[in-house]
């Protein structure tokens, strides 16, 4: 009888292991939002807010901390829309600098990789 009980225990553990399912637990990634101003000028400094909205669950993440022309946000992996708004300082090819209000947006992008990068062209408002 002891042997039978051991066999039953082993079969139960094997079956329990068989029923375990793969966990898709790669939930978060770092999203890098880069701002570009075209070929004639480079981005010197940015003061503004980036808002990324997850299209699956509607959650938004924001960041106002820019390192040069980009900011990074830790987000949940998935499809996103991006909106940026603020003030930007541009250096032109002749060496001059100008300051403008700007916006940038993207209706659909994917933050799935590690890290995920999206480049947005700015639209000058002034």
């Amino acid at each position: 009888m002891k042997r039978l009980l051991y066999i039953i225990l082993v079969l139960t553990l094997l079956a329990a292991a068989w029923s375990c399912h793969k966990d898709y637990d790669d939930f978060f990634t770092v999203a890098q939002v880069q701002l570009t101003a075209g070929d004639t000028c480079t981005v010197e400094k940015v003061q503004g807010t980036v808002t990324v909205t997850n299209l699956s669950n509607g959650q938004s993440f924001s960041s106002s901390t820019f390192e040069g022309n980009f900011t990074t946000i830790e987000v949940m992996r998935g499809p996103y829309s991006v909106a940026v708004e603020g003030t930007i300082s541009l250096r032109h090819t002749d060496g001059s600098s100008t300051i403008h209000q700007f916006r940038a947006s993207e209706n659909y992008c994917e933050f799935l990789r590690h890290p995920s990068v999206v480049k947005l062209s700015i639209l000058l408002m002034s």
Partner: peptide, 23 residues
């Protein structure tokens, strides 16, 4: 119970790309 959700990508009319899953 374990629930896996689809990460749906861009849509063309009513067809969505399947980009992955999250538990």
């Amino acid at each position: 119970r374990q629930g896996d959700e689809l990460i749906a990508g861009s849509s063309s009319s009513t067809e969505y790309d399947e980009m992955g899953h999250l538990t």
